[in-house]
Design a protein around this nucleic acid. Structure first.
Lengths: 217, 217
DNA sequence: CCTTTTGGCTAATTGTAATTAGCTATTCCT
DNA sequence: AGGAATAGCTAATTACAATTAGCCAAAAGG
């Protein structure tokens, strides 16, 4: 890893912990293992470092969504697998999404940083909404549009179904960002959320049987 | 309004727009209509102003939740009204919650401030989770526990039902905090969210009729 | 009415953080 | 090898923001 990259990495870590204004260039330098003035051989200002992080992240994000889109298409080839999606598959889908967002080093730090900086300018507001709200929602909506065509779910609006699926995951993600010690509780809730989601959305007569399961516990 | 209060008010406004570190005591003073040193006749430091805001807010919050609890009990007296809660009542409930959180001057500014400062110390993390996640969730859960007893909804876990009801509202709230221009869109989504929520959770045979409504639009 | 307190001001002072200057060792071509 | 670029350092410098000192007018209160 080049020094320039190391600087970005350490700066992102610090920005994600304390926010831009509370981080001093000396802190970043120390984290990289150098003195503050040396940073200026690589970036012309503190703000410049911040901007470089944004640029790097946008590239990263484009790559990842492109990848996801590819995977999505691959899975889509076998229509029958998805159309008959099981409760467990749904649970795994949600858990994976949550765990990725929470534990991917870059994604998680970047999200915390944006959480703190989102109000400082319009572009950052827009970026936050796009990455953590609008894109995930439309991704899930496209999946549900597909699943709805399979006929196992009730005939509803896929975008609202996506909202119902994703909003709890998003909310619990923000909880874990500020209180990492609550991850287990969050995972538990997500599992129950998706099971109940599956239960209420699924179109079938076996519902009565399921009710027994719930009332017993 | 006393000068001390005016200072808190203007400081909160500024903190909620730019965050603690990006606001200078001179800015606060100017907003109040005085010079920076004069602030020190009222508060002994910038941090002291911040702390005073927290204290004031906690009192405010206690009052409001106490009030809500009272209103809740009042409404609860007439069990039949709630037990047969209509779709429209649910929609109104969600909208009111959203609009209050979004437009109450104090609540909305305080939430934005906490959004930016939540990572700076454990107490703030805890406060944020309590006020915007845990308390609303348990409030909604208590309502749904009650409604479930009425028998019009499917037999499910009320706390997950509360999660399904509240999480989309919370998520759209954060969207409007950073992009106020999306309020109309958010309100529209919340209405659809709650209608679909009502549709999927309600235990009845008229579902088939409802499907027609959805597929038409 | 006098005097004490209150709350404002201007002009320091202090502290800190970003950035620049200027020196030096290493590396990299050719 | 030898000159140029690279990337680090220490020691300024600059900028600015929090706070303090000390002055003064008006209000409060006996």
């Amino acid at each position: 890893m080049t020094t320039k990259q190391k600087i970005l990495k350490e700066a992102l870590t610090l920005f994600s912990e304390k926010g831009y204004h509370a981080v001093y260039v000396g802190d970043i330098a120390a984290a990289v293992g150098m003195k503050a003035p040396s940073l200026y051989k690589h970036y012309k200002s503190k703000k410049d470092i911040f901007n470089a992080i944004l640029v790097e992240m946008e590239e990263n994000y484009k790559k990842q969504t492109a990848e996801l889109r590819m995977n999505g298409n691959d899975a889509g080839e076998d229509v029958s697998v998805f159309a008959a999606v099981s409760e467990d598959t749904l649970v795994q889908m949600g858990m994976k999404l949550f765990q990725f967002f929470l534990h991917d080093d870059y994604a998680s730090k970047f999200r915390k940083m944006l959480t703190m900086e989102q109000f400082h300018d319009h572009d950052l507001s827009h970026l936050y909404s796009k990455q953590y709200i609008d894109d995930p929602l439309s991704y899930e909506a496209s999946i549900f549009t597909f699943l709805l065509a399979g006929g196992v779910f009730k005939n509803v609006k896929p975008d609202i179904m996506a909202l119902h699926f994703y909003a709890p995951i998003y909310m619990l993600l923000t909880v874990c960002d500020r209180q990492p010690e609550r991850e287990m509780e969050a995972l538990q809730l997500i599992e129950e959320h998706i099971k109940q989601f599956n239960f209420i959305y699924r179109k079938d007569a076996e519902n009565e049987a399921c009710i027994d399961t719930w009332t017993k516990s």
